[in-house]
Design a protein around this nucleic acid. Structure first.
Lengths: 348, 348
DNA sequence: CTGAAAGCGCTTACAG
DNA sequence: CTGAAAGCGCTTACAG
């Protein structure tokens, strides 16, 4: 006789049927308490945990949530542990429902859309968290069409009415412009990512409106498109140095740009916080120690993770009842942390 | 009649049996080429991809490799995108065999051992990549016992003869000590992690041996145990300042420590690269822009990922034949990148 | 070369 | 409260 495994073996060991074992393990009410105790004890002792494929096939659900991340060279070198920071918060919510989180890194040589299509078709997860949304993002249309519950970290023009959370780029742009204007600046540049990532558009729009509120004319040459990296910041400084009517202040959409920006300016004898005002975006460890300290915006990654997970679960029929009040769309606030990089008053 | 799905629907659509569809899709040889073409075309058109649970259950294999990562606050704040950097290389190897990589983040409030046990029992992946190995690491014993193929990034005393790759801490310690001694230093401190992570022990051992080779007595008070963080570097400087016979040089096991170390020293009017020599460990973006530039060690994360994946596959019976020459244990070299932080010659 | 059938490990109506 | 049986979607001997 072949060796039995899994639930069959456990049932044999206990001399009861596999159905009862399953019901006991899954907390079904119609099980004798004495029986349940025996089953749980034996499972613990033998280290039995239900095979996920068996469960998934039968239940049509994997009890896992996927978080797609991209591991391109640019992402790796130029972002900090943003995603790992968010996972903590996400998991704290998922664990309430015995859901696991898998991070799904899209291979560099695979198109993110194709990768997602494959993951969806294979049904390795019940729902998805996606990020780095593009202005036009086919992934969103795919998920909507395939009726896979999902939440996006980032807005997009695609997909119509779907669930997203996005950082408050408008708020950041507005606060940054207001602050710089209050310090006497009128010629304010912005360094925005050169990729098609949606946040670039949103940010620049808000920056433009903020300028207009202050009666400052929008000058497209002051929107400097560069890579979201230290080197991009260096390039942005280079470009800014060559502008006619050189701006006296700059807002950097990615904080990491600040490192390269500082460097290029100092090379030129122009000192941030004295000769040029700089505001960064998200507080991140790498730029936290810049001298002079950077004015920047702060947020809690863990809290963002919680919000992401709750928004997602609210869209999944099985869990929706637990999260009735969850917003479908959230603008995630950031708090301004004043530094020395823009503290001076510009002389008129 | 209920709507059919999956392979059944596809077979119906093509008016052939599901067995033939399966064989065609899986590249089995005994399929008419004409039939195969029709099947592939139809699958592409209808977006059919085999349900993973069905496959896994039947085949006893998930075609996925798991990479366990920890997302504790300390890991998140104080490491860069190390893991995401490695995944690129890992995936480039896995994709040759149509294997997917899932990152499995261990929740903060769950014991890594329990988490791993659960993942292993559920059989969500065929094999594992683990990291952050402890000196005694129960996970390794578990994987060995459960006969799950795995590779560890980091050595451990546990588990006997298993597969691992580890950074060349000995080489780093030796090169760093040699270099400092050649610049005239005799009182050399080291800042090591306070956790039980295995690399701390390996590093300190090698440091000790290197000192002895130069006829320098080992002084335990010069091994400063701190958190692997910027703040830890600050603490290390604090401790060093208070030592009798204050060291003239320090080796920081985590590069990020350099930021805090510099800061504390400058507060005291002691300038790295002039009054105190500093050598960091792995080149990482956050510390790359320190002034004066830090002497540090460089490695390729992508290549390390490739090596990890090949070592892992070499232990999996199905793939072993492709990787006959893979070493079971590898010491991964790092290259010294000279900076200005230790360039001066110490006056006797 | 193709089809019919068994069975991977589980959960869940259903019968008792 | 428990057991026997069906069936989730697939792959793979086996028969033809």
């Amino acid at each position: 006789m072949p060796q039995m495994r899994g639930i069959r073996q456990l049932a044999k060991h206990l001399d009861i049927s596999i159905g009862t074992v399953s019901r006991a393990l899954n907390g079904k009410p119609d099980v004798n308490e004495e029986t349940r105790k025996r089953v749980l004890a034996a499972a613990e002792e033998l280290g039995y945990v239900a095979n996920q494929s068996g469960r998934s096939l039968r239940q049509g659900t994997t009890n896992a949530i996927g978080m797609m991340v991209e591991s391109s060279k640019e992402t790796v070198e130029n972002s900090d542990n943003f995603f790992l920071g968010v996972t903590g918060g996400v998991q704290s919510v998922l664990s309430r429902h015995n859901l696991d989180l898998f991070m799904l890194p899209c291979p560099n040589d695979e198109d993110p859309y194709e990768y997602m299509k494959r993951m969806v078709a294979r049904q390795v997860v019940d729902a998805m968290i996606i990020s780095a949304t593009q202005r036009i993002d086919k992934r969103i249309d795919l998920l909507v069409k395939a009726q896979i519950p999902f939440v996006a970290l980032g807005r997009s023009s695609s997909g119509g009415d779907y669930n997203w959370i996005d950082l408050d780029f408008e708020g950041v742009a507005t606060k940054a412009v207001d602050r710089l204007v209050s310090k006497g600046h009128r010629r304010i540049a912005v360094a925005a990512p050169s990729s098609d990532i949606n946040l670039g558009y949103i940010f620049v729009d808000a920056y433009r409106r903020a300028l207009e509120r202050h009666g400052i004319e929008y000058d497209p040459s002051r929107v400097i498109r560069v890579q979201s990296s230290e080197n991009g910041g260096y390039q942005a400084a280079e470009t800014m140095l060559r502008l006619e009517d050189r701006p006296t202040a700059i807002i950097l959409i990615y904080e990491l740009m600040a490192i390269g920006f500082y460097r290029r300016m100092v090379e030129e004898g122009i000192f941030p916080g004295r000769d040029v005002a700089v505001i960064g975006f998200r507080e991140e460890p790498r730029a936290k120690f810049l001298q002079p300290s950077l004015t920047r915006f702060r947020m809690s990654l863990a809290d963002l993770g919680v919000e992401l997970a709750e928004t997602l679960l609210a869209t999944m029929p099985v869990y929706a009842a637990h999260y009735p009040a969850s917003a479908r769309n959230t603008i995630w606030p950031l708090e301004l942390v004043p530094g020395e990089s823009d503290a001076f008053i510009l002389k008129a």
